[in-house]
């Protein structure tokens, strides 16, 4: 008995010591809180959303499992398809322009300019202002009677009547895309600027000595070395744009005649305002494949180390 009494503490010490030394186990333990938060606040709502999309649940009334009926309905719903089309136009146009202008802005900011830090801070403003506020500002800018743009053009004698920014389907699409671009450029520009600053100046010096022009330096040094950052930035940019809600909701509520309804706004209209939670969840779930594709594109892009460093893929 005495022997056992003596060995037990030793066992315990051993166990704790082993535990302490087992990096895998410790790693697991340290990750547990983060994993729990992810499970509780991300996986569970996502799973619930997908499940709701398979039921006919309404706000305030439990539903039953109806399989893919919501999706079958949506498949025949031309407003749903219009929202898919709008979402793609919105995402593609806004992302491409945000990238082009953002890159341009980053290159400008990367030069030696007076008040560099101040200007860089100012550039971030559109990103800092709460979306709803900037949406309200655009709502006024695009007002059908009091638009400041129309006013200036009319005062300057270039126009006779106000521009119907949000009243014509294509005008409305262009207007909301412009607002999204204005809001999204700082994120792209500042992140790309960070990437630009990691490129060693010696490369440019060497290239200059070799007689490379400005375009060649950009094409063969800046751009290849920037690609990993571009991949990350554009993934995030596409995700943000694809799931945009506030700008549209404040400015047009999806109008005119649903010309600016995105999948996110349609989902809200049907689920929360219309009470058809199941159908709204199905619309939201239908966004997942597209978002997943964007993530996978970036993920595999980042995995290719050669491509990341500007080399060619084999």
């Amino acid at each position: 008995m005495a022997a056992i009494g003596e060995t037990r503490p030793v066992d315990q010490v051993n166990f704790l010591a082993r535990l302490n030394n087992n990096r895998n186990l410790l790693g697991l333990l340290f990750m547990l809180p983060a994993a729990a938060i992810l499970l509780l606040f991300l996986t569970y709502p996502l799973g619930l959303g997908i499940w709701l999309g398979l039921t006919d649940v309404k706000v305030g009334r439990p539903g039953r499992f109806i399989g893919l009926e919501n999706y079958a309905w949506l498949f025949e719903d031309h407003i749903f398809w219009l929202s898919v089309f709008n979402t793609f136009v919105y995402t593609t146009a806004a992302s491409v322009i945000k990238f082009a202008l953002g890159l341009w802005l980053a290159l400008l900011l990367n030069r030696h300019i007076p008040f560099k830090a101040f200007i860089r801070a100012i550039v971030l403003l559109p990103f800092i202002v709460p979306t709803v506020l900037s949406a309200l500002a655009f709502w006024w800018i695009y007002d059908s009677q009091d638009s400041v743009i129309s006013w200036i053009l009319i005062e300057a004698g270039l126009l006779d009547e106000t521009i119907d920014f949000l009243g014509q389907p294509n005008n409305a699409r262009a207007s909301v895309i412009a607002a999204n671009i204005w809001r999204g450029i700082p994120f792209v520009a500042i992140t790309l600027l960070a990437g630009l600053q990691t490129i060693p100046a010696s490369l440019y010096e060497a290239a200059t000595i070799d007689g490379a022009g400005e375009w060649q330096r950009f094409r063969h040094i800046t751009f290849p070395l920037l690609t990993p950052i571009i991949a990350v930035v554009m993934t995030f940019s596409v995700l943000f744009t694809f799931t945009d809600f506030q700008l549209i909701w404040v400015m047009t509520r999806g109008g005119p005649i649903n010309a600016t309804h995105l999948m996110a706004t349609l989902s809200y209209q049907r689920a929360i305002i219309g009470g058809a939670l199941g159908e709204g969840a199905a619309i939201a779930t239908a966004m997942i494949p597209f978002l997943l594709a964007a993530i996978l594109f970036s993920y595999f892009g980042l995995q290719r180390r050669k491509w990341q460093q500007g080399g060619r893929d084999d």
Binding site: D143, S144, D146, E161, L166, G167, T252
Partner: peptide, 21 residues
């Protein structure tokens, strides 16, 4: 209709009316 009515939400006509437009 006045140009822009296609985009009108609930508050727009109040504003346009009060402006005399």
């Amino acid at each position: 209709f006045i140009p822009g009515a296609a985009s009108w939400l609930d508050g727009h006509n109040n504003k346009a009316f009060l402006q005399g437009a």
